[in-house]
Simulated assay, not measured.
Amino acid sequence: MDHVKRNEAMRRAMSRARMLDYGLSPDRADEGLARSAANRPWEGIFAQIANDARKQGLLGQAAQAMNFAQMADSFDTPERIVLFKQGTADFAGHVAGLDAPPKRIELPYKGKTVYAWDFGSGDKAILVLGGMSGWAASFLRIAAAVTGKGMRCILMDGPGQGDTRIIGGLYLHDGYTGAVSAMVDHLEASGSSRIGVWGNSMGGLFAMISARDDRRLRAACSNGAPPRMFLPEFRMAAEQMAALFGVMSVEDAAILPELEPTFEALAFNPALQPLPCPGLICEGGKDPLAPPGVQKPFLDGAPQGSDALLWEDGEHAIYNHGDDRNEKVTRWFAARLAE
């Protein structure tokens, strides 16, 4: 099988900066990217890197290598599910050994289950959401930045994402903002009343519409999302979008009856309903998916305290300035949740 074109697409979507931002070490990222140029299957390369790390007892590195291995297939094939479950087991083993290990949240929702990792404690909490392919286990460095400022951090897989989709059986049309509100109920019942929501990539849209629909959320950040979903032009992104709805081909997604109504329900239109809480947008000057200006509607009509951060050379989701992004965004949340 010729893996050249497939691997080229993977390298564009899974850049070195993204790998480092998610926590993969520079040497392992470089090894994987170099080996992927040699016409070998992407998932096999990163699964082997994960296996080597696992043998060394480096479960955090194994988890992130498996994270990138399972991303090779956008749809939930049996092969992908095996890779994904192994990565989840590696992640669980890694975080269990942290000085302050997180709690596992398994939240009933519509007769199924929403999954999340709960780090820290306290009245202030930030709910962190991913997008079409970067899910909860990808944001351990964000959790460290949030808890480092004395706030609680919940890494959540919403409907159509990660464990909530693959294990819990929930998809995007099952109601994303409703799942977030159910998680807010849980957070309030477990000691947090000042809650913000931070979405990365397409998760930025999910964060903003959740804050729009649930006024208990006191601050919201979008890190690289358009204000409306659409079927992307690039095949890999289109496949990832289709998979959010539990379908196994782009063609099926194009005719899925609930697709367009769900897109409409997820659209953010400030003319109809502006953001009721302070909002923050993170913009990258080199972001091809959400270039500067695209996220402006999130702030139209938003209250005082809203802001925009721009990194002139920033990649999508500001992967290439992860530490700076995390510091500035967590500082903004800490200020807003103290008001």
Results as ranks from 00 to 15, higher is better:
Glu8Cys: 09
Ala9Gln: 14
Leu20Pro: 07
Ser25Arg: 10
Pro26Ser: 07
Asp27His: 13
Asp30Gln: 09
Gly32His: 04
Gly32Lys: 01
Asn39Ile: 07
Ile49Leu: 11
Leu59Cys: 06
Gly60Trp: 00
Ala62Pro: 08
Ala65Gly: 05
Met66Cys: 13
Ala69Ser: 11
Asp73Arg: 12
Phe75Leu: 02
Asp76Met: 09
Arg80Gly: 03
Ile81Val: 15
Lys85Phe: 10
Gly87Lys: 01
Thr88Pro: 09
Thr88Asn: 15
Val95Phe: 06
Ile105Arg: 04
Glu106Gln: 15
Thr113Leu: 11
Tyr115Pro: 02
Ala116Asn: 03
Asp118Gly: 01
Gly120Leu: 11
Asp123Pro: 01
Lys124Met: 09
Ala125Gln: 06
Gly130Ile: 02
Gly131Lys: 00
Ser138Val: 01
Phe139Gly: 02
Gly148Asn: 07
Lys149Ala: 12
Pro159Ala: 07
Pro159Phe: 04
Arg165Asp: 09
His173Arg: 08
His173Tyr: 03
His173Ala: 14
Ala179Phe: 02
Gly191Asp: 03
Leu205Arg: 05
Ala207Asn: 05
Arg212Lys: 08
Arg218Ser: 09
Ser222Asn: 08
Asn223Gln: 12
Phe230Cys: 05
Leu231Gly: 00
Phe234Met: 12
Phe234Val: 14
Ala238Gln: 03
Glu239Trp: 03
Ala254Asp: 10
Thr262Val: 08
Ala265Asp: 08
Ala271Lys: 12
Leu280Phe: 12
Leu280Thr: 05
Ile281Pro: 03
Pro297Trp: 08
Phe298Val: 00
Asp300Leu: 15
Ala302Pro: 00
Pro303Gly: 10
Asp307Thr: 15
Asp307Val: 11
Ala308Phe: 06
Leu310Trp: 10
Ala317Thr: 13
Ile318Thr: 04
Tyr319His: 13
Asn320Thr: 03
Arg331Gln: 11
Phe333Met: 01
